[in-house]
């Protein structure tokens, strides 16, 4: 039995503590120990992107990180996107533009797109494609996702302008 480690972290603004083996993958810790099953496992080798979360505000693959490495960090998962019972504008855009079918890649796609839009708030279509190429989707042919991310960029950009004007 390997030594157990304690992991304390904040997920979606809520403090959690758990104990696990050091080899436990962060995605398994989120799903099994914290019962946050919104983050999905698609390949466990860092290619498909289904497990993408925001790690201290930046998109990262939770299948190729250890839970112990997240000790002391702040994580945002798909469960934390909705605020006050309202869908995030990115979620809203995915619904409006049919950016999902089976929904399995969707959590990773949303978190990746959120981070991407932070680094590039007004992307071109080619830039959106490049940004979301970090996540594999087998259902949509990506068109609905590209449309959704572009629409969300407009909504979020508009919101940012309003905020900066006040």
């Amino acid at each position: 039995m390997a030594e157990m480690v304690t992991v304390r972290l904040k997920v979606n603004g809520v403090a959690h503590e758990g104990r696990c083996e050091p080899r436990k993958l962060l995605v398994d810790f989120l799903r099994e120990d914290l019962e946050l099953t919104g983050t999905h496992i698609g390949c466990e080798h860092g290619i498909c992107g289904a497990c993408t979360i925001l790690f201290n505000g930046e998109a990262a693959r939770s299948c190729i990180m250890l839970a112990v490495q997240a000790d002391g960090s702040e994580i945002l998962t798909v469960e934390g996107l909705m605020q006050n019972g309202t869908l995030h504008p990115l979620q809203e855009a995915f619904r409006e533009h049919h950016g999902l079918q089976c929904g399995f890649c969707t959590p990773g796609m949303l978190m990746t797109a959120l981070d991407f839009l932070k680094t590039n708030p007004s992307p071109t279509e080619a830039e959106v494609r490049e940004g979301i190429s970090a996540v594999l989707c087998r259902c949509t042919g990506y068109q609905g996702i590209v449309n959704a991310v572009r629409a969300a960029a407009r909504t979020l950009g508009g919101a940012a302008k309003v905020e900066s004007g006040t």
Binding site: R61, D115, T119, S133
Partner: peptide, 9 residues
């Protein structure tokens, strides 16, 4: 290098 989420780490 890979994609942005890879470059994060």
């Amino acid at each position: 290098v890979g994609h942005l989420p890879i470059r994060t780490r």
